[in-house]
Design a binder for these strands. Structure first.
Lengths: 116, 116
DNA sequence: ACAACATACAACCAAACGGTTGTAGGTTGT
DNA sequence: ACAACCTACAACCGTTTGGTTGTATGTTGT
């Protein structure tokens, strides 16, 4: 079983979308620094518990955090590997740029060459 | 003049939002690899010219690409520095996680210490 | 001069988003 | 037993998003 390209793009969509909200980024910071229950997180923000819970759910669906049940609490924890996988998508982009620069350098190295 | 934290968060919102669409990520790949006119880009996708133009505008507002006018064409080019700045936001997140791990290691190093 | 081309932008529309309140079910402490 | 607590989720609502078509304006080549 090999993951299709569409699945990767779906994952990228979900991850970047999850990161495109400052409340969610803030939640992610907290749960990367340590486990927090959903209600402990909710206490930090000026919005309803349900709103914060939705943000947590978005982060979880994107794979950026995981939750484990302990009694009546749901403890959320940031997944650093997922964060790194987003970073590697960006370095992949950078490598495209490097290819472009390499091509330009090539042109400079051999100026006014007979073309082909 | 120092940029406020809110402005940084606004930039982050815009950048992650811009990256949270596969068409826009694809456009960004192309213009990181080399300059392309908006209509040359539009020809690649199964949607209207106006739709692609909007995607380019979103990327431009986020600072991920720049455009320069050459005659009747607008040539778009990817800004690798902006891509790197997104990457550094992610490594900042990672460092929070490292702090957490450091704290755990500390606990393991000095088990059952008298608590202060 | 003028037709073809490239861009920009407004107006519109369905779908998704980010918030709300309300309801329901499992867990805990007394 | 039961009140307080934690979580989950549905229903609703205004705004934003991603697409469309249409129109206006500038540029190029013949």
């Amino acid at each position: 079983m090999t993951t299709t390209e569409d699945q990767n793009e779906d994952r990228a969509d979900a991850m970047f979308h999850a990161l495109a909200d400052r409340t969610r980024r803030d939640i992610l910071r907290r749960v990367l620094a340590g486990e927090h229950s959903v209600s402990a997180l909710a206490a930090r923000y000026d919005m309803s518990f349900a709103a914060v819970q939705k943000h947590v759910a978005v982060l979880e669906r994107a794979g950026l955090i995981t939750k484990r049940r302990v009694g009546r609490e749901a403890l959320a924890s940031g997944d650093v590997e997922a964060v790194r996988s987003v970073g590697s998508m960006l370095t992949d982009l950078e490598s495209l740029w490097r290819g472009r620069i390499a091509r330009i350098d090539e042109l400079i190295a051999t100026p006014t060459e007979r073309n082909e």
